[in-house]
Computed example of a mutant assay.
Amino acid sequence: MSESTFTFRVDDSLKAEFSQAAKCKDRTGAQLLRDFMREFVRQQQEAEAHDAWFRREVQAGIDAANAGDVVSAEEVEVEAAAWRAELQRRLNGAMS
């Protein structure tokens, strides 16, 4: 792994407090900053992957709707009513 230097400006008091907090964790400020950077990159990659998945799912739904592959509101309500009735039956059985 090749390395490079990352230089930035920070308030003196923040640097001192950060260095002290890092020392309390038996870490250097540089170690923590590398950890923070890795975590930030990981979070961004996960967010991008989720966004790509979500866009694919939405497009699949749009494509299905455009192709006429839809369920009517009436069909959904009939199925939901059956689910509710089954749940109510289970709840009534559990309370007996």
Rank of each mutant, 00 (worst) to 15 (best):
E3W: 14
E3H: 09
S4F: 15
S4N: 13
S4A: 14
T5R: 14
T7E: 11
T7W: 13
F8G: 02
F8H: 08
R9I: 03
V10N: 01
V10W: 05
D11Q: 12
D11C: 10
D11R: 12
D12S: 11
D12Q: 05
D12W: 02
S13I: 08
S13T: 09
S13P: 00
L14P: 00
K15Y: 11
A16Y: 03
E17T: 10
F18V: 09
F18M: 13
F18E: 04
S19I: 10
S19A: 14
S19H: 05
S19V: 14
S19R: 03
A21F: 09
A21D: 13
A22G: 07
K23Y: 11
C24G: 14
K25Y: 06
R27H: 07
R27W: 07
T28R: 03
G29C: 05
A30N: 12
A30Q: 08
A30W: 00
A30M: 03
A30F: 00
Q31R: 07
Q31V: 04
L32T: 05
R34S: 12
D35S: 06
F36N: 04
M37D: 07
M37G: 06
M37C: 13
M37F: 13
M37Q: 09
R38W: 05
R38L: 15
E39W: 02
F40W: 03
Q43D: 11
Q43I: 01
Q44A: 09
Q44R: 04
Q45R: 12
Q45I: 04
E46G: 01
E46S: 01
E46T: 00
E46N: 05
E46M: 09
A47P: 01
A47V: 01
A47L: 06
E48M: 01
A49E: 04
H50Y: 13
H50P: 00
D51P: 00
F54N: 12
F54D: 11
R55H: 09
R56L: 12
E57G: 02
Q59L: 09
I62E: 11
D63R: 08
D63N: 10
A65E: 01
A67P: 00
V70N: 05
V71W: 06
V71M: 15
V71H: 15
S72E: 15
A73C: 06
A73D: 07
E74K: 12
E74Y: 13
E75M: 02
E75V: 00
V76L: 15
E77P: 00
E77W: 10
E77S: 09
V78P: 03
V78K: 10
V78M: 12
E79P: 00
E79V: 10
E79D: 15
A80I: 11
A81C: 09
A81V: 02
A82D: 07
R84H: 09
R84K: 14
E86F: 15
E86L: 13
L87S: 13
L87G: 11
L87T: 14
R89E: 13
R90M: 12
L91G: 08
N92Y: 03
N92S: 15
G93K: 02
G93Q: 11
A94P: 00
A94K: 08
A94D: 04
A94S: 11
A94I: 07
M95H: 02
M95K: 01
M95C: 08
S96D: 10
S96M: 10
